[in-house]
Amino acid sequence: MKLGNVIGNVWAERKVKQLHGCRLLVVQPIQSSGRPCGSPLVVADPGRLAGIGDTVVIVTSTDAAQAFDSGVAPVNAAVVELVDIIQ
């Protein structure tokens, strides 16, 4: 998993069935110091945890599909935590 800053939203009318009703966020992966590392990703947010400007923890692997209630989704990046503090 990685830390990330939510920098945007993606709106899409036509998309696969599993992604209906699921927010798509644009997330810039960062280090805990805040330094960006890697290019921005589109990350699914089934739990409706985050919005623009939030720091989140994202899981980037096939485990991301398990962030969905059905456990099945064609995604490999999902928001799993909204970060309060990193200490």
Partner: peptide, 17 residues
């Protein structure tokens, strides 16, 4: 460092990140 979060996926409840 430790990541402190209150709003998260249930699988993370009670676990240190």
């Amino acid at each position: 460092k430790r990541v402190v979060s209150t709003r998260k996926h249930p699988a993370y409840n009670g676990k240190h990140v």
